[in-house]
């Protein structure tokens, strides 16, 4: 399961970012922020590709010693970044992919909320609980 989930706006500022454990929050913020380098590069590389044929899932952005960072970018250039513990080998690419899809669906629900102003920080409870379900349960 994920240790950090982040939603990044088109302009690259964070819309939502949550991580477990809480005490090392800053480290994950930096990790998500630096992963945007790779996202930017990947997005600009496939910029020419047809929009409807484009794969939203960007795959593994970069591995660190302890974590793996995965990326996903929507057609409106909103980025999802997920940090997974490296030791968690049970997670396959397909599972990551489906987690991202779930995240995307939930994000779409947030966007459909008429009271949500696109570009504001996400404060939806439904989204929050969905993210919680994807995170490691700290016991």
């Amino acid at each position: 399961m994920a240790v950090c989930v982040a939603v990044i706006a088109k302009e690259n500022y964070p819309l939502y970012i949550r991580s477990v454990p809480m005490e090392n929050e800053l480290k994950f913020h930096y990790m998500v922020h630096t992963s945007l380098d790779v996202v930017d590069e990947k997005v600009s590389a496939m910029g020419k590709a047809l929009v409807d044929q484009r794969e939203l899932y960007l795959g593994l952005l970069y591995p660190t010693e302890d974590y793996k960072v995965y990326g996903y970018v929507t057609n409106s250039k909103v980025k999802f970044v997920m940090v997974v513990d490296s030791s968690n080998t049970a997670l396959r690419d397909n599972e990551i992919r489906s987690m991202f899809r779930k995240l995307h669906n939930s994000y779409t629900d947030v966007m459909c909320n008429p009271f949500y102003n696109p570009g504001d920080r996400i404060q939806s409870r439904a989204f929050d609980s969905m993210v919680t379900s994807m995170m490691i349960q700290v016991c």
Partner: peptide
């Protein structure tokens, strides 16, 4: 850099 991208937590740190 952090300011222009709006990463306030990082900027604060």
């Amino acid at each position: 850099d952090y300011r222009s991208e709006g990463w306030w937590t990082l900027l604060t740190s």
